[in-house]
Design a protein around this nucleic acid. Structure first.
Lengths: 113, 113
DNA sequence: CGCAAAGTACGACGCCTGTCAAACTTTGAC
DNA sequence: GTCAAAGTTTGACAGGCGTCGTACTTTGCG
């Protein structure tokens, strides 16, 4: 029937959490994993959003999916589809408003001897 | 013999790591635990150093010892003895120099709805 | 000396989480 | 319509880490 909503590409990604419902605990649990920090750092450095596949991670595809999921649940990234590619965007401003200085400190801490 | 060094109270605490040998990974692993963040936050708020026993933690004494150990290894606290009490001091300036803004962001993130 | 206080060291245990492979889904291109 | 590309989902497994109790050590006090 016409009222039944078709499964569009938008429906393929679940809701993103409101950033204010996220605890510091959840954020730290997300960012303690080096693979997830690599993702965040690459998104931070990139001039535009990145598809999952364009970030080459030292893990299998299914594990990568898991990591992106955790980052999304922690309010760090926003995901949307373009064709078969899932794009990832850092929620920079929102996150900074909720946790001022944290993202910057972590990115800074990344480039070091 | 007189040259043999007696085991003084100073010898009871192992060496503290040079802050520059510590990785961001190690720091985050230390601070992802809520009990350890509680310790750091209380030390941050306190006007002076605190003995282990004066911070009441929701864990047993042996577990508390473990947490202090992890914090020391991560370069976050300095420990020394006064009598039977082990005192704990936040290595604030040193840590800030190595990881600028991180401590502040975490403490800020702690007080929130 | 003898005892209590404050931690430490050592195992042991249980859960949580990162990991993968395999099967499946959706989309775009030929 | 068929096929490949890109991710997802599910289930299973292994290792690590937080936890505790118990025994031990060091110190201070009476």
């Amino acid at each position: 029937m016409a009222t039944a909503r078709r499964k569009t590409r938008d429906d393929r990604v679940p809701d993103h959490p409101d950033i204010h419902t996220i605890s510091l605990q959840q954020v730290l649990e997300a960012l303690v994993d080096p693979v997830r920090r690599q993702i965040v750092n690459e998104l931070y450095a990139a001039p535009q959003d990145l598809a999952c596949g364009t970030i080459d991670l030292p893990v299998s595809k299914s594990t990568a999916t898991h990591h992106f999921h955790v980052l999304r649940e922690a309010g760090l990234i926003r995901q949307y589809y373009v064709g078969t590619s899932r794009m990832n965007a850092l929620r920079r401003e929102e996150f900074d408003e909720a946790f001022p200085g944290l993202l910057q400190a972590l990115v800074d801490g990344h480039r070091r001897p």
